[in-house]
Amino acid sequence: MAALSDFINLYLLPGLVVGCIYALGAIGISLLFGILRFAHFAHGDMMTLGAYLAIIFTASWGWSPYAALPVAVIGAAIVALGLDRAFYKPFRRAPGIVSVIASFGVMLMLRSAIQLIWGVDVKTYDIGIRFPMEFGLLKIAPRQVTIVLVTAALVVALHLFLTRTRLGKAMRAVSDDADLARVSGINVEQVIRWTWIIGAGLAAAGGVFIGIQTKVHPNMGWDLLLPLFAAAVLGGIGRPYGAVAGGLAIGLAQELATYRWFSDEPFVDPGYKPAVAFSVMVVMLIWRPTGLFKGRS
């Protein structure tokens, strides 16, 4: 029994939490790819930005990170709109690869700006110690519950937005066929702006969750990039629901791979967790580049 409780509390639950965080980042990558047709390499750094924006409020005014989260989301969305205007909008009609190179530049700029403003030290939100709740075998930290529930709520909200609102449907229409959307009278630029707001906002929420779960450092965006891409590719890039499933799958795979499956040693050395995400991504790219689910062509 102790082994089972270990498995659930030390591998399954953390995997689920990490999966939620990956899902929040991967949604943005997938939405942006669908609308703008390029892989946004600065998306991990959008998550870092969200985490640091929250620090302004937790460190200076002693806010709870949960209270700082909405502010960080709004702040990241505003920054994303500015970055789009300055660095991506000029390349709307250029091949997507030019925007990828521009996103390299944005990645360097975002990370160095964060290092410049907040320094390079590891930071944490001061949330105090809260004891985990015990339900039989389960030992769940309150923050884990919050992260999973808030992520679920955000995904449901996204679903309602995409299926019930005029703008959300227009977003799916542009993702489906941008040229047709344009000649149908859909305001594509407006759709693009909202894609940035949603993508960056969800990424920021994910970044704050990382801070709540563990700690915050300026390079974390880079470390996130691989699992985020893996999640987006696994779910079929351009498909936001797939990204959610992909994020959960990658998070769980990374944590569960380090379980002592066949011996007393971890199956995969914890130092090699990112390699798990990478392997999944490469297998998917070669075997089914359109994703596990029926992907876009």
């Binding site: 005029r166 799916r172 489906d176 040229d179 859909i186």
Partner: peptide
């Protein structure tokens, strides 16, 4: 390519009214 393939017929019509 004159319809939004992944959108429902109703949604296609709604997009015309954007």
């Amino acid at each position: 390519r004159n319809v939004f393939r992944s959108l429902s017929v109703r949604e296609n019509l709604e997009m015309g009214a954007f």
